[in-house]
């Protein structure tokens, strides 16, 4: 069967990038560490619904996200707390606050489920952004696969002052996630190693070789490193991301 993932006669996607995105897309449908395949696809589907959710639009326009009351347009498979998280992370990244995380925990979402949900949401945000930016059609979500989440809990988590624990640099090295050096952002999803692995594989193809990110002479294609960083800085500024 012909592989049609991210193919278009007008634009050719590099093989490494296409492979990384295709892997992340396939894994979306598989049972995860803390969510089933059906739940993971429901999370992915909510990301798409959030883009057109009128409550999200109203809230985004308001001075405070709490000033507007209403209901998200949702397919109803996930809990209201999960839907709120997905829509908020997708449509209002500038105003993500600790209260959002705390409300999710109060509603019964565990820290690990939160991290995996974040991994799924950002996979879809990433691939969809890529498609829109290149002019490619959005990819159809895969059909969920049966099976139970693995419940894998890695050893060597540490508190670095973030809302969730991260794998220590040594523990992540043992898990095969990174080398001897890993900044906080590389370790961000590491309490659910499978999500961290997928994120880092995609990062190599999207951005730069993470293990050589401090080499300021490395660019991407015809772009210099400074041009790469101009793009990166502008996106982070639009998202009001301090990190």
């Amino acid at each position: 069967m012909t592989n049609t993932f991210l193919t278009d006669p007008e634009i050719s996607v590099r093989n490494d990038l296409r492979a990384a995105y295709q892997k992340a897309w396939t894994v979306l449908a598989e049972p995860g560490t803390w969510w089933t395949g059906r739940e993971r696809i429901a999370i992915a589907s909510e990301v798409r619904l959030a883009e057109h959710c009128s409550f999200c639009k109203e809230r985004k326009a308001a001075l405070s996200p709490f000033a507007v009351k209403g209901q998200h347009q949702s397919d109803g498979i996930l809990s209201a707390a999960a839907v709120e998280l997905i829509h908020r992370i997708t449509t209002d990244p500038q105003r993500i606050a600790k209260s959002m995380f705390e409300q999710a925990l109060e509603a019964g979402i565990t820290r690990q489920q939160y991290v995996e949900l974040l991994g799924v949401v950002t996979t879809v945000v990433g691939v969809d952004t890529f498609c829109k930016a290149t002019g490619l059609a959005l990819q159809k979500l895969p059909e969920p696969l049966p099976g139970q989440p693995s419940g894998y809990e890695p050893q060597g988590l540490e508190d670095i002052g973030a809302w969730v624990p991260l794998l220590s640099v040594k523990a992540g090295e043992r898990e095969g996630l990174w080398g001897k050096f890993a900044p906080n952002i590389v370790r961000a999803l590491s309490s659910v190693p499978r999500e961290a692995e997928l994120l880092l594989e995609a990062a190599q193809a999207e951005y730069l070789d993470i293990n050589n990110a401090t080499d300021m002479t490395l660019g991407r294609g015809k772009m210099s490193r400074l041009q790469v960083e101009i793009l990166a800085t502008r996106v982070s500024s639009l998202n009001e991301c301090f990190y």
Partner: peptide, 30 residues
């Protein structure tokens, strides 16, 4: 640049759309 740069630029933008959300959603300190 060239046609491939559209893909390169889109990949970088997509990457930061993800990473910004991840950093902010877990309260990641510098």
């Amino acid at each position: 640049f060239d046609l491939a740069a559209v893909v390169d630029c889109a990949g970088i933008v997509a990457h930061y759309e993800k990473m910004d959300r991840i950093a902010d959603s877990i309260g990641l300190p510098l």
